[in-house]
Amino acid sequence: MLEASGITVRYGRQVALDDASLTIEPGVVTGLAGPSGCGKSTLARVLALMLRPRSGTLTVDGDPVLRWRQRAPRELRTRVALIYQQPRLAVDPRLTLADVIREPLTANGRPDDGRVAELAGEAGLTGDLLTRRPHEVSDGQLQRACVARALTLEPRYLICDEMTTMLDASTQAHLVRLVNAYRERTGAGVLAISHDTILLNRWADKTVDLFDPADQKQP
């Protein structure tokens, strides 16, 4: 379980997130809805250990998170992967798509063993595209690479922050399928963050609302 409780985040005097609690169970797609500016993306970064909250606790499979970002143990932070809304901002513009997908492997000193090709294939990226740089592919193709990258290290939890908002219906369906197949194969927990309630109704096993007090008190 990925459990966040009583998370509060402030930027200066501005409160971005006030006492939010959320649990992501393994093998389950949890949907998170809510209007923009309510702190969904902030919570996503906290859950991925990328933002240190002012107060509150986060545990990953029972291990409490005490340090954040690069100070967090590598093994702990690679257990949670984050997929961003805008793929253009989420990849280094100098890397080819293959490098983007391979990045987590090389960062952890692991061999490729055909994993990059396999993941790219699942994401629907064919050979030639993998040698391109981000500015030479469409948003949809880039987001496919981002999803493949997120799955490279087989994370236990996957945070999808408005993953398909910029994409057409067909690419959306493909990426959701990819994430679902991964979840079924590995039993990973998924948090699907979206403003699109129709999408969440279809994708998520259960949906929580950050503003609904009943959800806050979930055990």
Binding site: A48, M50, Q70, L82, A107
Partner: peptide, 20 residues
């Protein structure tokens, strides 16, 4: 920036983030 964050989240160490 998200792309640096994504590298950190993928397990890149300090030196690697700086270098790469």
């Amino acid at each position: 920036r998200p792309f640096v964050e994504a590298a950190v989240s993928g397990g890149a160490g300090r030196m690697r983030v700086v270098r790469r």
